[in-house]
Structures are given as C-alpha cells and as structure tokens.
C-alpha cells in the first residue's frame, strides 16, 4: 500500500488554475507530516499540454500523468472522470486532492462514485493522523459548524478545497517523471453530453483572490448609485470590490464571481472593509481570516461586529461619499 498523494491539476483554456498549484504545495506539506510518506503525483487532463508540464514540475510534482488528446480540449465529466478512474485503479493512491472549482466540484464526487470512495467536500483544513490517514475539516451550516471527516476504509481519500483557503503556492523544483496516459479506452466511454464551448471574461481591476484590500458591500448599500462609491474607492486604492448575496440579486454587483462566502469565494486580504453587511455565517466563513476587519453598520447589534476588529456604528450613505472624496483627492 503506497502513501502517494495525488493532485488533480486543473487547466482551463490552457492555463493551470491557481488552486491546483496551492494543492501541490499542500500535498508537500502533508507529506512531511507522514510517518511513511509516498510521492506527490500530479494528473493533468486536456489538449496540447506540453507547455504546462514544466509548471507542474516547478511546483513539486514528482510524477506527472498527462492525458493529452484533442477530444479532451473541453472538460466533459464522463471523459475526465474515466481517466482518473483508470489511473486510480492502476495505481491505488492514498490521497487525491481536487480544487473545488465549478468543474472540480463535479469531477471529485463523480470519480468517487466510480471507484466507491468518499470525498470530504470544500475542506477548510487538512491534517494527517498518527496512522497517516487524512483528516479533513469540513464546514456545514454555512460555516457555523466544522466537522472532521475521515475516510478510513476506502482509497483514495478524496478532498476538495476552494481556491484561497490554503497558503500561496511555493515552488519546489522536482524533476517530475512524465508519464503519458494511454487513452485508447476513451472510445468506449459513453456520454449523452457534448461540450460546445467555454467562454471566460478576465475581470477588470485587481482579482478579488489576490487583492490585499477588499471593499465589500452588502444589502445596506441600498442602491446602484451608492454602490459606485465602492468601485471608485477600490479603483483608487488598488483594492477589489466584493459583495454579499443581495447585491448580486439586485444587480448592483457585477456577479457571483465577486461574492464572498459559502457559495462564493474565500478571501484573506490584509484589510477587509465591510459596508452594510449583517454578518450571516454564509458570508463570514469566507472572510473571517482577513488580517484586519473593519465594518460599518447602523445596527449596533449587527453580528458582523462580533467578527470585526473595528465595528463602526454609522450610516454608510453618509460615510461612503466622504470616504470616496477623501481617497480620490
């Protein structure tokens, strides 16, 4: 029984996603905690992957399975999961880490169902027990509850993690051996689905995940005009605008890709400024690890104050214009 830790390296449009690199670093960290560690192994699936392999090596993959074929250019659950299933059956890894992106959140449970094992979903922390088993800390009830999830009898122990939860990836040069996966079996994979296209938009400004300062607006912002102040301030100070769910529903915010929380992103900026946010656990679980938290709310009993370093009781309709003026001068 080997103790190899596998990482599914997700690529979209020929670019490796950040969470995949975070997972490679995490795999190395877990390896150092084990009594009898195995290797850190990467699996990458797609088309024309040559250029990506060196990056996977730079982040410490000691072995890389490459499934490279035209038919894999766009993600398709049955094709991608069939490849992982085949590799798992042949190599019996100890642990498999998958990024909990939109596609990874589907791929992990699909593979697990095919090989009949468990997935710890959207973990916030990974640990190794005395007998080298994975202990995954998983949130429930919007992050209000955390539970340890184990997968004692089945292999691999699968865990999915969102981007931004783990530490920033670090380079660990490894001369990872590259193994091309024989894909002749793919012709037998049955599916009722055909991916037609993938379209992505590069968001303007500083990406939320990388921003050191996050300016977050909630329902209390009240209207589109007041919302513009947030954008103005963020632009001026090089921060990123984020939101809770209501501004997405109202259409003030550009979309769910800037929402923080259970169904959105997890961020850890140096400074988080929250305007008109009540502090539902669904939101807090995505920002509680920020460096400094300042929030403004007119309700002195707002839950958000309990997780803030500074809670300012005030009307944001008055504070925001003034703040915008101060920073844009």
């Amino acid at each position: 029984m080997n103790k190899d830790i596998w990482v599914y390296v997700e690529q979209i449009e020929g670019k490796i996603t950040n969470v995949s690199l975070e997972l490679l670093s995490e795999a190395h960290r877990l390896k150092t905690k084990m009594q009898r560690p195995g290797q850190v192994v990467a699996v990458i699936i797609g088309s024309q992957l040559e250029e990506l392999i060196s990056t996977v090596q730079e982040y410490g993959a000691q072995k890389i399975y490459v499934a490279d074929d035209k038919s894999l250019k766009l993600y398709e659950p049955q094709y991608y999961a069939a490849i992982l299933k085949k590799l798992i059956k042949e190599n019996d890894p100890h642990i498999l880490l998958v990024g909990a992106s939109a596609l990874g959140s589907q791929l992990a449970p699909t593979v697990a169902a095919k090989v009949k094992t468990g997935v710890a979903a959207h973990c916030v922390e990974l640990k190794i027990s005395e007998n080298d088993q994975l202990v995954a800390v998983v949130p429930a009830f919007g992050g209000k509850v955390l539970g340890d999830i184990l997968c004692p009898k089945n292999r691999p122990q699968i865990a999915s993690i969102k981007q931004g939860i783990l530490d920033k990836p670090v380079k660990i040069e490894a001369v990872g051996e590259v193994i091309k996966v024989d894909l002749s079996f793919l012709t037998q994979v049955k599916t009722n689905l055909k991916p037609l296209k993938i379209c992505r938009e590069e968001p303007k400004g500083v990406p939320l995940e990388e921003a050191e300062i996050v300016i977050c607006g909630g329902w209390g912002v009240g209207d589109q005009d007041t919302w513009h102040y947030l954008e103005k301030i963020a632009e001026k100070i090089g921060g990123a605008v984020a939101c809770t769910r209501p501004p997405v529903d109202e259409g003030w915010a550009p979309g769910e890709h800037v929402m923080i929380g259970t169904s959105g992103k997890s961020v850890r900026p140096k400074l988080y400024l929250g305007f008109g946010i009540s502090g539902a656990t669904h939101h807090i679980c995505g920002m509680k690890d920020s460096g400094l938290i300042i929030s403004i709310n007119r309700d002195e009993n707002a839950e958000i104050f309990k997780v803030s370093d500074y809670g300012i009781i005030g009307d944001i309709k008055q504070v925001l214009p003034l703040l915008a003026e101060a920073v844009t001068k």
Binding site: G118, V135, E300, K306, D309, I313
Partner: peptide, 21 residues
C-alpha cells in the same frame, strides 16, 4: 465511505471595538 469525527463550532469572534463615532 466518509465517517464523521470530532465536530465543533469555530470561534470566529474578535475582541473588537465597537465605535459610536
């Protein structure tokens, strides 16, 4: 295949100041 272990409610609180300013 997954089995629950310990369960807890994380302490997310900060010793913050609430300011009426």
């Amino acid at each position: 295949p997954t089995q629950p272990g310990d369960i807890f409610s994380p302490d997310m609180g900060r010793k913050g100041e609430i300011l009426k300013i």
